[in-house]
Design a protein around this nucleic acid. Structure first.
Length: 148
DNA sequence: GCCAACGTTGGC
DNA sequence: GCCAACGTTGGC
C-alpha cells in the first residue's frame, strides 16, 4: 500500500490511536477491488512511500478490518468527496490498517530494481504502474523482505 | 518542474 | 464503441 509520506507516512501510522488508520481516499476501481475482495484481517502489508526523496518500502502493517464504505466519499467539500456516491449505494471502500514495525533498513525502489530477476512480475517494479494498492505474491514478499 | 503512463470523461 | 481531451500518479 502506497502513501505519500508528506500526507501520511508510516511514522504517522505508528502515532495513531491503536496504531490504526482507515485507509481512505482510494479512488481507483482496481485498488478498491483489491481491498474489497482480497484483503483479510491479519494480512500483512508493505508500507510504501511514494513521491518523495527515496521512494520505497519503509515498514510493515497489517489489515485490521475487512472493507467498509469510505466515509470521505459522502462529505461535501472534502477532497475525496464523490457526488455520485450515495450512502445506500457506496462507491468507494477502505480497510483499516495497523502499524506493525519499521523495516530495519528501508528498501528503496532502487534496491528493488537491482533484484528484478527475483521479482519477475512483481507490480511494484513495473514501469507505469500507478496502483496505490496491489497484491504481492508470497514468493515476492519473501524475496523483498530478505533485502531488509 | 517535467513527462510517461495510465484512467476517466464525454462528444459523436 | 471510439477516441480526443483532460486529470492524476509518481519517478526522476
Amino acid at each position: 500500500m502506497k502513501s505519500e509520506p508528506e500526507s501520511f507516512s508510516i511514522d504517522d501510522l505508528k502515532k495513531r490511536p491503536n496504531k490504526t488508520e482507515p485507509w481512505d481516499g482510494v479512488r481507483n476501481y482496481q485498488a478498491r477491488n483489491f481491498m474489497r475482495d482480497q484483503m483479510q484481517v491479519g494480512d500483512q502489508v508493505f508500507f510504501y512511500h511514494s513521491n518523495c526523496d527515496v521512494p520505497g518500502i519503509y515498514g510493515l502493517a497489517e489489515i485490521a478490518s475487512t472493507a467498509y464504505p469510505d466515509p470521505t466519499q459522502f462529505i461535501e467539500n472534502h477532497h475525496h468527496y464523490d457526488a455520485t456516491a450515495k450512502p445506500e449505494e457506496p462507491r468507494w471502500m477502505l480497510v483499516d490498517v495497523r502499524y506493525l514495525r519499521h523495516l530495519k533498513k528501508p528498501i528503496s525502489l532502487n534496491l528493488l530494481k537491482e533484484h528484478v530477476e527475483k521479482l519477475q512480475g512483481c507490480p511494484l517494479i513495473m514501469k507505469g504502474n500507478r496502483l496505490s494498492v496491489m497484491p504481492i505474491r508470497p514468493e515476492h514478499w519473501k524475496a523483498i523482505l530478505a533485502l531488509e
